[in-house]
Design a protein around this nucleic acid. Structure first.
Lengths: 256, 256
DNA sequence: CGCGATTTGTGCGTGTCTTCACAAGCGCTT
DNA sequence: AAGCGCTTGTGAAGACACGCACAAATCGCG
């Protein structure tokens, strides 16, 4: 993990105390709070109560307060939180005060969509390079960026100080791509390929698998169906399901 | 199927036991085990030890055993797990024995990619209908499916017994789409729009926000940078940070 | 038939996350 | 200035998840 932060660009050298080590669960929620706060700011709100912000972010208000308390107290009792201040705080903690460059590898079906997804740019990330191994795709221009061959990956990643690599290749290619990203100094990887990546210590990998999400939902569908099929049998079923008419699930198949 | 296990009576070994309520964390890992198992099956393996399967899935072996024990014991001590049997078990528990139909709403940048993503079909999900509100997109054919207008959503969802709705619209439209899905009897929603959905009890929502993933990675980048920048801040930094290469060593740190 | 090698299943200690409940603090009003 | 209503911040308890370590079970072999 070679830290290739250019020494000439120090981050916010002042104000904020040393970066606290937040619970992982808190970190995962901060972006959600941030999004809700931006909505509030656009609507002209200057302060917000924990109750309000919590519902906007879809969480319990006590949890929200505890989360925010981890970054130092920036609320005013009896009033709430200053929206603008809180935005600054969260953006600082998340490291969004400096725009991070992203390299996207694999410009297939999904990669193409990611390259054109404007949600990245609007939230502080700049896709700086695209890569693919297919010679047909190399050279193609997407959103003003030319697709380069994956052989250049390590070199370009180093040159452009890529902070985050996004892998949108087939599973078979993902590990090789990850190795090249690491070799290029990248220490954060977002993996869309359905496989487990092996990386050195100090490199963070997050995995997003769309089919996995569907499978988790499928489990809950299955469970709900089996609950309605077996009414009370010693165990109290949860709620009587208010509007569960629908008749979506005729009978759950049992065989293979 | 409405049989409930009578106390004392032995379970039918062939018929599947009553659906256990698994810990949520376990459910989230089962798809990963399933993927690894399919890989093993393709390579001709008939049994697998917990150690092997655990590394293939990127988890601790004790955790894997405990997860599997929740679905009833299907391993043989001294030998391991029967790959085919375990696949059947997990697929049953996840409700994948019956193919679930998916409706995809929003055929923009991301939605287009999802419609063409073959990872869904290969893992038991069939996209049965596409919807959009843009009249220009309505009528377009993608992968053999014609995009319908979102006004038809509720009706079609009911008619086609849609099990899962996928929302890939802008945030502003997502809640309206969710309402229509619910009205059409859909009880599971996968939401790609960056907003919180409000749904009745009994409806499950999972959210995937690509920008959030990047922001979480950004936090860790920030933390890593501040650690190397401020070596002595009262806390001892983790490892002395070995050289950047050392490509393949499975001492991996699981990023989740 | 018994023994050793192997691997599962799980009890238990530990740590993390969540939630409740309430004291402390702030501003507004009188 | 004092009181009051409102909201934050947090201690404590409960719920959940994790991983170790070991007993129980199974197979293969002599």
């Amino acid at each position: 993990m070679s830290q290739h932060r250019p020494p000439g660009a120090p981050e916010r050298p002042v104000a904020v105390p040393a970066l606290p080590d937040l619970p992982e669960a808190t970190v995962a929620r901060l972006p959600e709070y941030l999004r809700a706060l931006h909505n509030l700011a656009e609507n002209g709100h200057e302060t917000v109560s924990s109750e309000w912000l919590a519902t906007a972010a879809g969480v319990n208000s006590a949890k929200l307060r505890k989360d925010l308390s981890h970054l130092g107290s920036y609320g005013t009792r009896g009033v709430g939180y200053d929206v603008a201040l809180l935005i600054d705080q969260i953006e600082y903690v998340l490291g969004l005060t400096q725009r991070r460059t992203v390299a996207l590898v694999g410009v297939g079906n999904l990669g193409h969509a990611l390259a054109g997804y404007d949600g990245f740019a609007t939230r502080g990330f700049r896709i700086a390079a695209l890569f693919d191994s297919d010679p047909v795709r190399v050279g193609e221009e997407i959103n003003g960026l030319v697709v380069r061959h994956v052989d250049e990956l390590s070199r370009v990643a180093t040159e452009e100080s890529i902070a985050i690599g996004v892998i949108a290749t087939p599973a078979a290619a993902a590990q090789r791509v990850a190795d090249r990203l690491v070799a290029g100094g990248v220490t954060s990887i977002l993996n869309f390929a359905p496989c487990v990546l092996t990386v050195p210590d100090g490199v963070d990998v997050r995995k997003v698998d769309l089919a996995v999400e569907l499978q988790i939902l499928s489990f809950h569908e299955h469970r709900k169906a089996s609950l309605t099929a077996l009414p009370a049998a010693g165990e109290a079923p949860l709620t009587p399901l208010p509007g569960s008419l629908a008749a979506t699930d005729p009978q759950e198949a049992i065989g293979t």
